[in-house]
Write a protein that binds this DNA or RNA. Sequence first.
DNA 1: AAGCATACATACACGCATGTACGTAAGTCA
DNA 2: TGACTTACGTACATGCGTGTATGTATGCTT
Lengths: 202, 202
Amino acid sequence: MTPEAPRPTQADRRAATRVALLESTARHLSRYGYGNLVLEQVAKDAGYTRGALYHQFKDKQELVLATWSWVIATMWDEVIRPAEAETDPVAALLVLARGHAVFCRRDIARLSMVLRIELSGQDHPVGREVERSYEILVGLCTRLIAAGRENGGIPDGPPDRTLALAVGGALDGVVVAVSGQTPHDELLAARAVAGVLGIRVP
Amino acid sequence: MTPEAPRPTQADRRAATRVALLESTARHLSRYGYGNLVLEQVAKDAGYTRGALYHQFKDKQELVLATWSWVIATMWDEVIRPAEAETDPVAALLVLARGHAVFCRRDIARLSMVLRIELSGQDHPVGREVERSYEILVGLCTRLIAAGRENGGIPDGPPDRTLALAVGGALDGVVVAVSGQTPHDELLAARAVAGVLGIRVP
DNA sequence: AAGCATACATACACGCATGTACGTAAGTCA
DNA sequence: TGACTTACGTACATGCGTGTATGTATGCTT
């Protein structure tokens, strides 16, 4: 028995509908992108109307930003943190690859790529936020690659940052292409990353 | 001196306008996708108005389909044909990777990925056509992989087709991520493909 | 050179999605 | 229990993009 009251309070209702709307937004966003996202469909898919949506979120932009933060937070817990726990940089990068593949087995798989593809280079708040998150990830990869090179685990070649961008791209690309094809997705993601890094395939 | 008349005829004008519109469409499509494609911007960027555009193309859909065919034809000549000329399947796949990277140095780099991401799974004529083209490419990769496995050049692992999908995804992902970063793009594309295939990195 | 066709521009009608204003029912607290 | 707030639905206004109808100038034909 949870410490929550058996009879749901208003705050509970609010939170529940919020999560439903965020999940629905993530699904639709990953399928249709930002521009083609239709709020009526989002609300309907969550079991509500646009009224509920506009009651909880100021506008489309805020809804999407909230969804993005929500997804990123989840991804951070399930993918980034385990990778950071590794001591060896190459191991960390491979854990990242496998974790991302597993993380993307959900319906929200393509969300990150869709938003980056659609809004990168645009002067859009959502695009800026997405790029900011991605920049952090690329920074992490860049540092791991630099460490791996000092370590001797990663051979010389293109600049660290270029390599990091390629790692991210290959990873996203593979995962989107074979999304859900358990268990090959994990292996192939790891292989793609290893290949880009120039190390022996695992 | 070309065999063409020095004074441009109407057919010449029409063809020139058509190419200008197709090029502009490819650029805008690759940046904004299909849904966010604004025909007034496309026409303006080509130096015309929507009037010219609707004079040459029935509607938005036909314009995009024409642009797609045009891009695919170019890609076929510059990427697929050279790859098919190789006798060794692994060599062919690596030529494909490098060729795609070079091909995507243009502004139209992300076009294929953008359209696939946005329209795949939709019941959209453009989406169907894009998937059809992509399917041919995946089929080619699948056959090359099967040959490479009989050959002994590619180790066993995930099904041929799954591997082909991963190859395509990794390739697109890398190329979009490091697009234009000559000469690293070529190397990294080849490495990603090799990694996915499970062969020693080139 | 006159008449017709072509290439392109301009102006208008329509649909669709967003955002907002308002209405209603249920929950909360005195 | 009654006043007030919260959660959500409904209805309307606005903007934007597409498609179409019409206008104009230039190139072709006889």
